[in-house]
């Protein structure tokens, strides 16, 4: 009976393990850093995690649809450089919000370019987005060759210090993401997405508009990457064309830790959101556990590998017991 419920939990709720992992990570972090739930600490952590949460949510949609988006970091960079160059350190709030809209448009466009190549021209997602990632980072470098520029500090502080009802802004954003995702999941598109990700051919034969579904996932990813770009720009307050580059692989890691399989069709968006938070918490744990400096990278990588492998290991052990 017990075995049945574990398997069932794992199969039916791909985010189950991600949440388990997060809870464990939170407990460890809390032991090492007793003030971590203090309002300030919580907010300062969440504002750093939020860009990755947004990015991972978009990445999850693409991966669910059977693809992968390696260009998300490039899109983050484009958005960051647009805001940093066009708004400027002394820009007005109106200017800021105008260019936020412009850069979200740019993100959607970048996603649409990916989607066009992959869905309509049937190119390999991994190669296509790898190539476009250079296109996007290159474009960002063209906009802003040297780091600099920025957005007004007052606007950055809205992002940094807004805590409605004493809760970090990120919590509300997460709630909105999850609500929207719940809604999408219940629509026809939601079903199509899982069908395409699970088996595109079979989906095609059952009259699912595969091309459009795939196209849409990349547009969604571009949109979320643009939001992540806005978030990280407001976090750092400055421009740097390389800012998004290291974020790409982390977003994929967050998706996988979140129980969404790279093969597509399995998982959801909630898990990757949780995964992104877990990755951030892991960094905190490393930081507060006073591990010897030279071992930090190794230990962090080990934890991530174990976290990635844990569901598989548990299943393997359970099978052996029988």
């Amino acid at each position: 009976m017990k075995r049945f419920s574990w398997d069932e939990m794992m199969n039916r709720y791909p985010a189950f393990f991600a949440i388990l992992l997060l809870v464990v990570a939170l407990i460890i972090n809390f032991i090492l850093q007793p003030n971590m739930f203090a309002r300030d600490t919580l907010n300062s952590n969440m504002r750093v995690f939020l860009p990755m949460i947004l990015l991972a949510a978009g990445q999850a949609v693409v991966i669910l649809g059977g693809g992968i988006d390696i260009s998300v970091g490039g899109i983050v960079s484009i958005v960051n450089t647009i805001l940093a160059t066009q708004v400027g350190l002394n820009g007005s709030p109106e200017k800021m919000w105008t260019y936020v809209l412009v850069s979200i448009g740019a993100g959607i466009l970048a996603g649409a370019i990916n989607g066009f190549f992959i869905a309509f021209l049937r190119l390999q997602p991994i190669i296509t987005t790898y190539a476009t990632s250079f296109l996007y980072v290159g474009f960002a470098l063209f906009i802003l060759p040297n780091p600099g520029g920025g957005i007004p500090a007052e606007i950055a502080n809205i992002y940094r210090n807004t805590t409605p009802l004493g809760l970090p802004l990120a919590f509300y954003v997460i709630a909105v993401i999850l609500l929207i995702w719940m809604y999408i999941r219940s629509t026809r598109f939601g079903n199509y997405l899982y069908a395409v990700g699970g088996n595109a051919e079979a989906a095609y034969e059952t009259a699912v508009p595969v091309t459009w579904v795939i196209f849409t996932t990349y547009v969604a990813s571009g949109f979320m990457a643009a939001l992540a770009g806005v978030a990280i720009t407001m976090l750092s307050g400055s421009g740097n064309a390389e800012i998004g580059v290291p974020m790409t692989l982390t977003s994929i890691t967050a998706v996988v830790i979140g129980g969404t399989a790279l093969s597509g069709g399995v998982g959801g968006v909630a898990g990757p959101v949780v995964g992104a938070i877990t990755l951030g918490i892991i960094q905190n744990i490393i930081s507060f556990s006073r591990i010897d400096t030279w071992w930090e990278t190794f230990v962090k990588a080990t934890i991530i590998v174990v976290a990635l492998a844990a569901p598989g290991i548990i299943n393997l052990l359970r099978r052996k017991k029988v």
Partner: peptide, 13 residues
């Protein structure tokens, strides 16, 4: 650790 801007902000925090 090798990290990006957000990561260094986290380090400082």
């Amino acid at each position: 650790a090798d990290t990006d801007v957000a990561g260094q902000i986290q380090q400082l925090q």
